[in-house]
Design a protein around this nucleic acid. Structure first.
Lengths: 222, 222, 222, 222
DNA sequence: CATGAATGAGAATTCATTCAT
DNA sequence: CATGAATGAATTCTCATTCAT
């Protein structure tokens, strides 16, 4: 992804990748500190302790640099998700694990979400479209994972069969994603066990007391 | 040193307020089109069909202008909420109404959310702090409304008494708020009736089939 | 100097002149506070407690306004000088009186000088030329007064006949004028009696001890 | 987003200093042509034949640029003064030399004075304070030099012992400094020999004929 | 006559990007 | 490959001036 342009290949591919990562780290740090619009290429260079021009050797433009940040972070998260899903375990438990896991990862997730949003809302049209496509992909992936768990749960008999899986899946995903805003604003405490328990409970059982038979979901009362 | 061309002077307080609103409308449109960072004061002026300087006559700075946008939109939403809550009606119904209502308002809400986020992530430190305070206030208000409904429901016997009201309330609020992202990305259809039904069902009954007695919320099986 | 333009003559000529003076006062105050370049017409209007547009009714432009300030202040000073010169008194005494008088007026003179300089150095080419002409006129006048006193003194036998009257006159004038800078910078105390005595002594007798016969001024020894 | 056109890169410290000087030269030229307030950074860039942004690479702001101009010019003048004062020569002769020297330097001094004044009267509060401090320092230095010469002369017996050295010193300094205004206005000719002779004579012997014994300085006649 | 809203021509400054060294 | 000086388009904001009311 970083084609050389002029002279010799002074360094090994490892060095190259290392410097690339160093720049991406710096970019991520800037993103976190000031967001996309207010982060300058100089900031990134300074943070990475390299020259301004060097950044441009590794990434052709500011847009590309930050897109690469998104890509790298996305890949990280995705690769963390896979082993979990491969575990032999009832769907309901996996769902609970994901919810619980999310809140225990909450140091990173919000940064990511905020960083991505800052690109999304601060960048030019072209980058915005690319980033939207990326974010949409991530969401699609997550939605699918949750939706699959729900479907699996239906087959297991643990999930209500009349549930609208796509929308419920999407709801759970955004809920986990966006709750960080409330935490960030100090409106709810960042207390992972309590969050996991409360959100898990809510997701599994909803608000209402059980009795009203669950088959009247889409209509009024029977 | 500066020959002008047209002129449309606001003299009465009403005219003033109208021009102010005209500028705020333009700013909101720009916010929607390009976000905060990429919206220039020239854009706003052009959109409002007035001179660059005129914007500064009504608002002392870009920050103040967009903060005023947030304020106005916020006030709008708030004032729409109040009559609903005042209606004599069971809490569970009000909750359902709010969920349903949100999705029917979904033409505006996402714009608002996106617009606010674009300011939040694109602005300088000072504005960011002011805006965070504002957004936090709105969230606090909404959280309270939902939490109160849940508590009311508990007293009515329609809401599960063991529910963690603050976190569940916050969860419902962000769920309604952030679902727009998924819609925006085209991942779920903007079909208000279906959304209202599915999300309403999810919020009320959760995912799981009922049988497991509802008192084991935070633990495993009884 | 302020030709009416549109409707009726609502006010008496006195009122007109009074408002004109009020504006000039405000302009002088602004000049004193922030200098020409940093004084805005809004500042002047605000200081005069009138509307922005009103200033333009009395003065066609910023340049004209401040030129009028200069004119008025100049006239004031000039009219104070005349009676002094008309007094029946030896030239040497008049010179001494002027020096002494200058330092006792020192609350105003420096302001004036600074104000004029701020216009001179901050204004556009056209105004600069007009102002230079005005200032040159004032200096010419003062130079002439001093030069005349020196010549008169020569005739009286109190002033050294070999003195270069024009240059000496100019020297005395700038000395009195510019000494304020040193006072302003806190380098010498604003102590009128001491200043008058010391400068008077210096002007009258110079630095050197007397003996070297005064006719060898421009050459070596006689 | 910004296609460039030419390029002339300074790499070595000498090149850097040269470019810095080139910019300072341009700034000094602008100062001379139009004064501080009317000189724009674009003017400076154009005069120096470089890009607007380059000026900002070398100087962080307009204020800093012009402050650097003052600093450089000040240092120049100061360094010219020192060798003169180190010469083994009677104080009276040094004084005469300084007076004479000033008028022969008169091509530069007035520019300097005018340039500094234009900053002083056109700049914002912060720069004004810094510049005042600088100018005060220069004046303090010059005053001290002249005052020391006078004191030295008193010890030599060539200067009148009753002279008020600080005020007389300050008077001589401002006289030399400000006389340029009169020359600039065309009120006296810029004829260095005549100026040196006439001002030298005036400074040394004052206006009056000698006889009145020199000890009655601060009073009337004995 | 008075007012203040409206206007647009700059001015200072920032920053992504290029390129000579 | 790396660097940082150079560049100019773009942005925010100011202010003299005009003119509808």
């Amino acid at each position: 992804m970083t084609p050389p342009k002029k002279r010799q290949v002074a360094r090994s591919p490892e060095d190259l990748a290392a410097k690339r990562d160093q720049i991406l780290d710096a970019a991520m740090a800037c993103l976190h500190d000031k967001g996309f619009a207010r982060s300058t290429m100089s900031d990134v260079a300074k943070t990475a302790s390299i020259g301004r021009g060097t950044v441009y050797w590794h990434f052709p433009s500011k847009d590309d640099l930050f897109l690469a940040v998104v890509q790298r972070e996305t890949d990280k998260v995705t690769s963390e998700l896979e082993p979990l899903l491969a575990m032999p375990m009832p769907a309901a438990d996996k769902l609970e694990l994901m919810i619980s896991g999310t809140f225990h990862m909450y140091a990173d997730v919000p940064h990511l979400f905020k960083a991505f949003l800052s690109i999304l809302t601060g960048a030019g049209e072209e980058l915005e479209q690319k980033l939207e496509a990326q974010l949409a992909d991530i969401y699609r992936q997550y939605n699918q994972v949750i939706e699959d768990l729900l479907e699996e749960g239906k087959r297991e008999g643990t999930v209500r069969p009349e549930l609208d899986s796509p929308i419920t899946g999407a709801s759970i995903v955004v809920l986990l994603d966006a709750l960080f805003l409330q935490i960030h604003f100090g409106l709810i405490d960042n207390d992972p066990p309590r969050l996991a328990a409360a959100v898990g409970d809510f997701v599994k059982r909803g608000c209402l007391v059980c009795p009203p038979s669950s088959t009247d979901a889409h209509r009024g009362t029977p």
